[in-house]
Computed example of a mutant assay.
Amino acid sequence: MNDTELITLLRSGDRGAYTEIYRRYKGILLIHAYKKLGDFEEAKDIVQETFSFLWKDRDEIPDTKNLAGFLYTVVRNKILNYIEHKKVESKYASSFIQFIADENHLTDFLIREKELVALIDKEINALPEKMKEVFVLSRKGNLSHKEIADKLNISVFTVKNHIKSALKTLRPKFELLIMVSILLNLY
């Protein structure tokens, strides 16, 4: 039978015509799909989808004398859809990997920030008691020198001296901590 007769029988639901078309074109379509995809399993899936489409939509098959050309076109379109789908999958996978990398970086940053704050608090707690109290009220409590002096019943001059001495003690230690933190963030 020629292709035109096979299509006519196929449209009427003739399973024998379908089997003949499958037998006649499966091999060459498989080779064609494999050459385009480079993956034998994917090529088999494309050809299987093509023949499923052929049976399911047999009423919609256009009149053609070139069944091979029609089938090649269906396979080509399915390959293009497959490639486009793979591009979308790849884009989402890359996006997900980037999200995970960013999330890990953020988590790492937050952990290091917490460790740095703990080290700074440790250095502040090592100050003499009155100096520490004045420094904490100034830097963490955001109180003015006058407000601290009033609160602790000491002179503004004493407050200034405590803060000056605390900064003189802490500055070299903080600089070292910041340098170490920067170096750790580089790696």
Rank of each mutant, 00 (worst) to 15 (best):
residue 8 T to S: 10
residue 139 R to L: 03
residue 47 V to C: 03
residue 154 I to C: 04
residue 100 I to R: 03
residue 47 V to W: 01
residue 124 I to L: 06
residue 171 R to N: 14
residue 69 G to D: 01
residue 166 A to H: 02
residue 161 N to E: 13
residue 92 Y to D: 06
residue 67 L to M: 04
residue 40 F to V: 10
residue 175 E to D: 14
residue 144 S to N: 07
residue 33 A to L: 06
residue 39 D to V: 06
residue 105 H to R: 15
residue 182 I to L: 15
residue 156 V to H: 11
residue 42 E to S: 10
residue 128 P to G: 04
residue 113 E to A: 11
residue 8 T to L: 05
residue 49 E to Q: 11
residue 19 T to N: 09
residue 59 D to R: 13
residue 98 Q to Y: 07
residue 177 L to A: 12
residue 187 Y to S: 14
residue 175 E to S: 15
residue 93 A to Y: 13
residue 112 R to M: 00
residue 49 E to K: 13
residue 43 A to K: 03
residue 46 I to V: 14
residue 65 K to R: 09
residue 160 K to A: 12
residue 113 E to L: 07
residue 174 F to Q: 07
residue 185 N to G: 14
residue 182 I to V: 14
residue 114 K to R: 10
residue 157 F to Q: 09
residue 102 D to V: 01
residue 167 L to Y: 03
residue 44 K to M: 04
residue 119 L to H: 12
residue 18 Y to W: 06
residue 123 E to S: 11
residue 123 E to R: 12
residue 113 E to S: 11
residue 109 F to A: 12
residue 18 Y to H: 03
residue 122 K to N: 13
residue 98 Q to L: 07
residue 140 K to A: 10
residue 61 I to L: 12
residue 9 L to D: 02
residue 49 E to N: 13
residue 168 K to V: 03
residue 95 S to Y: 13
residue 151 K to N: 03
residue 162 H to S: 01
residue 151 K to R: 14
residue 22 Y to H: 07
residue 149 A to Q: 02
residue 63 D to L: 09
residue 26 K to V: 04
residue 37 L to W: 05
residue 76 R to H: 11
residue 105 H to D: 06
residue 170 L to Q: 08
residue 125 N to L: 13
residue 103 E to D: 04
residue 92 Y to W: 11
residue 183 L to E: 15
residue 36 K to E: 14
residue 68 A to N: 04
residue 7 I to F: 02
residue 172 P to H: 10
residue 118 A to N: 14
residue 77 N to T: 09
residue 52 S to L: 09
residue 114 K to S: 15
residue 90 S to D: 13
residue 64 T to H: 05
residue 124 I to S: 07
residue 152 L to Q: 00
residue 117 V to M: 10
residue 26 K to D: 06
residue 32 H to I: 05
residue 124 I to D: 01
residue 93 A to L: 15
residue 185 N to M: 12
residue 180 V to Q: 15
residue 120 I to M: 15
residue 77 N to Q: 10
residue 77 N to D: 08
residue 110 L to Y: 10
residue 33 A to N: 05
